[in-house]
């Protein structure tokens, strides 16, 4: 007797495989990575390499340890390592990316059953783990004797000395990958054109965030302030590369829209009302945990099925 783990037909087979999708994501992350290395110097490249290599190593080791076929071929560990590195400030010591990728790969992903079964985005889980564990190291954004405050922290303290053009190009303090809005948007365009992501999550995320900032930040219709919030911090990186993670976002379009709006509101709440200046990673993680609830309320009706309320009316 054989049990095959398949549903009934019809089956639609796509030409894209997991490995190919992950390759596109890596490609889309390259402009951001390149800008980070250009902006922060060679140490940024070291952190990226360390993080990516240790992610691959931990996934391979874990598969060896539990005697399962190695899953490093699907490239998802490379994406996780790369995203984790882009979420670290350049001043961290060498062991931070290694601990981070251990947590991301082993604790968040592999223990729960590997890619597709992780309940939150591994890179973001690791980032939050590191921020809570080493708050001093993870918020030290000083580089090249440049004073440490990120544009968002400056906004929070009330000064409007930040230059919007600098923030869009990326000439500011921050984590390796978050500073340049331009490079991230280029990467996002690559992904959208190749059909890897769509705007259901990212678009609603950014729009609802902007609406919340306009309505509740207490600044009125202050366009420079809004632009600074949009370009600053991890919002763009989070919206295009982490909120859109296939595993941890809702499946249906309706669910994705609800998810995006929730993320936007949470991020804005964290940024305006919490003591810390940044809130993207925690917002997306809370969103990830709520995805099963969102899915429960957005089960799509199959074609041809009569809705329950109609049937009752017929009786």
């Amino acid at each position: 007797m054989e049990y095959k783990n398949v549903s009934s037909n019809p089956h639609i087979r796509d030409h894209m495989s997991t490995g190919k999708i992950m390759l596109v994501v890596i490609l889309a992350l390259l402009p951001t990575t390149a800008y980070g290395v250009f902006h922060f110097g060679i140490k940024a490249l070291l952190i990226v390499l360390l993080s990516v290599l240790s992610s691959i190593l931990f996934e391979w080791l874990f598969c060896k340890l539990i005697k399962k076929e190695s899953t490093i071929r699907d490239n998802s560990c490379v994406v996780t390592g790369l995203l984790l590195a882009l979420n670290l400030p350049v001043s961290v010591p060498w062991w931070i990316p290694i601990i981070g990728s251990f947590f991301a790969i082993v604790i968040v992903k592999m223990i729960f059953g590997g890619l597709g079964k992780n309940f939150m985005n591994p890179a973001l889980g690791a980032r939050c783990f590191l921020v809570i564990s080493f708050p001093k190291l993870m918020t030290d954004f000083a580089y090249d004797a440049f004073s440490g405050a990120t544009p968002l922290a400056q906004l929070k303290s009330g000064s409007m000395s930040v230059k919007i053009t600098d923030m869009i190009i990326g000439n500011t303090a921050g984590t390796i990958g978050e500073t340049s809005m331009l490079a991230i948007v280029v990467g996002a365009c690559i992904m959208i054109m190749l059909g890897v992501i769509d705007l259901y999550v990212s678009g609603t995320y950014i729009l609802s965030f902007a609406v919340f900032i306009l309505a509740f930040a207490g600044r009125g219709f202050d366009m420079p302030y809004l632009c600074a919030h949009l370009a600053g911090g991890g919002l763009m990186l989070g919206a295009f590369f982490m909120a859109t993670d296939y595993v941890t976002r809702p499946v249906s379009k309706k669910g994705q829209i609800i998810y995006g709006i929730f993320l936007g509101f949470m991020t804005a709440i964290f940024r305006i009302f919490s003591p810390s200046a940044e809130g993207v990673s925690f917002a997306i993680i809370i969103g990830n945990l709520l995805v099963p609830v969102i899915e429960r309320f957005t089960v799509p009706t199959p074609f041809g099925v009569v809705k329950n309320s109609n049937r009752k009316g017929g009786k």
Partner: peptide, 15 residues
């Protein structure tokens, strides 16, 4: 050396 402070907080107990 830096201790991994999350282990003395609530999540550490679960881990």
């Amino acid at each position: 050396q830096y201790p991994i402070a999350i282990f003395v907080m609530a999540p550490g107990a679960f881990f």
